[in-house]
């Protein structure tokens, strides 16, 4: 039964151009009930409602383009194994997700991936796996490239989005 369901799910994801990503959804479902995990899922009208709290027009407009936001945070990084993270990454890469950036620093692994359709970004995925924390942010919507730049999420993960390595600091001073 389970296999049939999984197969059906995979078939559906191939047939429809849909924003949902089965492997990501499954990941969220799996860690849903864990004691040390915090999960928030906003979609539809709730997200539009959240956009009312946005501080400026830019953020408001941006939030309207996001159809679903799902965040999973765990204080204990070791609940999710490296293999699981690896498997998730492998799965999403096979589902048209492309890597943007990968940073590994002192036991923390951060991955940014996106999925596009027709020059619009339909999904954004941020994964942070560390020894002491785990975070997964999944965003679905219809974003143009300019929008991503202004993306600001009021979760602690927000500053990771801005953590694009500033090439300047890596350039050696002769």
């Amino acid at each position: 039964m389970k296999i049939t369901l999984i197969a059906l799910g995979m078939l559906m994801s191939i047939l429809c151009v849909q924003a949902q990503t089965p492997s990501v959804e499954r990941f969220f479902e799996k860690y849903n009930g864990y004691e040390d995990s915090f999960e928030i899922s906003l979609q539809g009208w709730m997200l539009k409602g959240a956009s009312l709290f946005a501080e400026d027009d830019v953020s408001k407009q941006l939030m309207r383009k996001i159809s679903k936001l799902r965040v999973l945070i765990m204080d204990e990084g070791s609940l999710v194994s490296k293999q699981e993270v690896g498997r998730l990454l492998k799965n999403v890469r096979g589902q048209q997700f492309e890597d943007l950036m990968e940073i590994r620093d002192e036991g923390n692994n951060i991955n940014f991936l996106i999925r596009e359709d027709n020059n619009r970004i339909t999904n954004v995925l941020m994964l942070l796996k560390g020894d002491e924390e785990f975070m997964l942010i999944s965003l679905e919507g219809l974003l143009k490239f300019e929008d991503l730049n202004r993306l600001e999420i009021n979760v602690t993960g927000g500053d990771h989005f801005k953590k694009v390595p500033k090439n300047r600091r890596d350039v050696p001073r002769a």
Binding site: D99, M101, I103, R104, F112
Partner: peptide
């Protein structure tokens, strides 16, 4: 021991 950063072609496109 290493800090590793990878920025993909996709990122540069963006």
């Amino acid at each position: 021991r290493f800090t590793v950063v990878y920025i993909s072609p996709k990122m540069f496109q963006m």
